[in-house]
Amino acid sequence: MESWVGASAQLELTVTDADTAQTVGSGDVPVLATPRVLALAEAATVRALARRLESGTTTVGTRVELSHRAPTPIGRTVLATAKLAKVDGRRLTFDVTVSEGDAVVAEARVERVLVDRSRFLATAFGTEP
Rank of each mutant, 00 (worst) to 15 (best):
M1P: 11
M1G: 15
E2R: 08
E2H: 04
W4M: 02
W4G: 03
V5N: 11
V5L: 03
G6P: 03
A9D: 15
A9V: 07
A9T: 05
A9K: 07
Q10A: 11
E12Y: 03
E12H: 06
L13Q: 00
L13V: 02
V15S: 02
T16N: 05
D17V: 15
D17K: 08
A18S: 05
T20R: 03
A21H: 02
V24Q: 08
S26Y: 00
G27M: 06
G27K: 02
D28E: 10
V29W: 01
V29P: 04
V31R: 05
V31I: 08
V31A: 05
P35A: 07
P35M: 08
R36D: 00
V37H: 00
A39I: 08
A39K: 02
A41Y: 05
E42K: 09
E42G: 09
A43M: 11
T45R: 04
V46Q: 14
A48W: 09
L49W: 15
A50N: 10
R51Q: 13
R51L: 01
R51Y: 13
L53I: 05
L53Q: 12
S55H: 07
S55Q: 11
G56L: 01
T57A: 13
T58Y: 00
V60C: 03
V60W: 05
G61E: 00
G61I: 04
T62Y: 07
R63F: 15
E65W: 11
L66A: 01
S67T: 10
S67A: 15
H68Y: 03
A70Q: 09
P73M: 04
I74F: 12
G75N: 03
G75Q: 01
R76Y: 12
T77N: 06
T77Y: 08
V78E: 00
L79K: 01
L79V: 13
L79H: 01
A80P: 01
T81H: 10
T81Q: 06
A82I: 05
K83N: 13
L84C: 10
A85D: 13
A85W: 08
A85T: 15
K86H: 15
D88K: 09
R90S: 14
R91P: 13
R91S: 09
L92E: 14
T93H: 06
D95T: 15
D95G: 15
V96I: 13
V96G: 02
T97S: 07
T97L: 10
V98Y: 00
E100C: 10
G101C: 08
D102G: 09
D102I: 11
V104I: 15
V104G: 07
V104E: 14
V105T: 05
A106E: 03
A106K: 00
E107I: 12
E107P: 09
E107Q: 14
A108K: 10
R109W: 06
R109F: 06
V110P: 10
R112S: 00
V113A: 07
V113L: 12
V113E: 13
L114G: 12
R117F: 06
R117T: 14
R117V: 13
R119L: 10
R119D: 14
R119W: 04
R119E: 15
F120L: 11
L121F: 07
L121S: 07
L121K: 10
T123I: 07
T123V: 02
T123E: 14
A124G: 04
A124W: 10
F125M: 14
G126T: 04
P129R: 08
P129G: 10
